[in-house]
Amino acid sequence: MRSVCLLGVKAELGAGTRGASLGFDAVKIASLSKNKSFFQQYPYQEIAISNDALFHTSPHIFAKNIDEILKNQITICEQVHLCLKKNHFPFIISGDHSSASATIAGIKKTFPDKTLGVIWIDAHADLHSPYTTPSGNMHGMPVAIALAEDNITEKINEVPPITALYWEKLKNLGVKGAKFSPNHLVYVSVRDTEPQEEAFIAKNKIRNYTVEEIRRRSVEVVVREILEEKLADCDLIYISFDVDSMDSSISVGTGTPVAGGLSVTEAKEINALLVQDIRVCAWEMVEINPLLDTKGNKMGEVAFEVMESTLQSSKKTKSYEKSEITSLSI
């Protein structure tokens, strides 16, 4: 059984809409409304970061608030690193998705010689850089940061030198350069991408398991293929779960909902099965925004359900060995 290190990160600076920093509190309230003792059973730590930059206009139009995001990511990276050094299992509830690159940096700082695999469960690829972004919102950039990837062949923006400097510092957080390889990146439920991201995905042959494929082949078959085939060569695995991976009828309290996503049952099953792999060293849930929730705290409640079942399942760890998988053609 792994000792859980429950971390709350009230990240807000990378999103285009306000309210993601309240996601952690929304999940805690959901726990109380369900009369659960979860946050007593698993004491939590809130990582101290600042969102004060929201009260000022960012000069970095292609990477909004990147200077303050860098400061926050240094703190997040260090806290994840300390958690892992104590042989704990980081379970992270964060605000906007930009914080995920700091989590990955913390993992790599702790295990610089280990091969890391990343499972990105999301409606979006989050592969933009300041050179390719159409919005400048940094919650669309964490995968590119962790890959140390500019995707310069798809460049649409002329990035000022000061922004480029901060971008380089972010890419080198924790350890210098890329934290993992595109060969060890797996997408689940991604369905809303821009041409710049699509070009990088195609060039690097990055696998995306669509909702249609998951339903056709079954969650269990897809999960086993990810763990036993796609990430077979990885020593460690990080899972990032964005609530907008679920269908927009469910993810009513998130900044960028997209139709055609996972059901709650599918989200719970996917995370529960993945996290049983002993190589999984951190799990993160992001983008809960109660200010956008049109159904009270429904998003927080669903997120809590997914988190609770995932954490319980993480106690049932096992080692996966590469085996013959019988599956439908894709």
Rank of each mutant, 00 (worst) to 15 (best):
E198N: 09
H124A: 03
N72V: 09
L7Y: 03
E213I: 05
D233F: 03
G260I: 11
D96I: 13
L185P: 12
K315F: 13
F241G: 06
V222G: 01
S58Y: 04
P161E: 00
F62W: 07
S245Y: 03
K109Q: 14
I288T: 14
S33W: 10
N271A: 11
L22Y: 14
K316G: 04
V243C: 10
K316Q: 14
L165E: 12
I119V: 12
V27Q: 05
V80Q: 02
Y44Q: 10
T103M: 13
K205G: 00
I119D: 09
F24T: 07
V264G: 06
L311N: 09
A144L: 06
A303M: 08
S189A: 08
T153V: 15
G117P: 14
N297P: 00
V118H: 09
K86T: 12
I270R: 00
V302H: 10
G23K: 03
P59R: 04
W167A: 07
Q73Y: 05
V118S: 10
A63D: 04
T153L: 14
V175Y: 04
V252P: 14
V264I: 15
N172G: 08
D277F: 11
H97D: 13
K169P: 15
L185N: 03
E284H: 13
K203Y: 01
A178R: 13
K169E: 15
E225L: 06
F55W: 06
P142V: 15
A48G: 08
F55E: 08
H60Y: 14
S263H: 02
N35E: 05
F241K: 01
S245L: 05
K28P: 01
I278C: 13
D235S: 05
S50L: 05
I61V: 15
I49R: 05
L127W: 07
A63C: 04
E78F: 04
D192M: 04
D25T: 10
A148E: 01
E198C: 06
G19L: 04
A125P: 00
Y238G: 03
C5G: 04
A232D: 13
L165W: 14
Y166W: 11
I162Q: 12
A272P: 13
P59H: 06
Q40N: 10
P195T: 08
G8Q: 03
V190S: 02
L165P: 00
S309D: 11
V280P: 11
K318G: 05
E12P: 01
L13V: 06
K230G: 03
K36H: 11
V264Q: 12
D126A: 13
A232W: 02
S33Y: 12
I104T: 10
L292K: 15
E229N: 14
G261W: 03
S245W: 02
E78G: 02
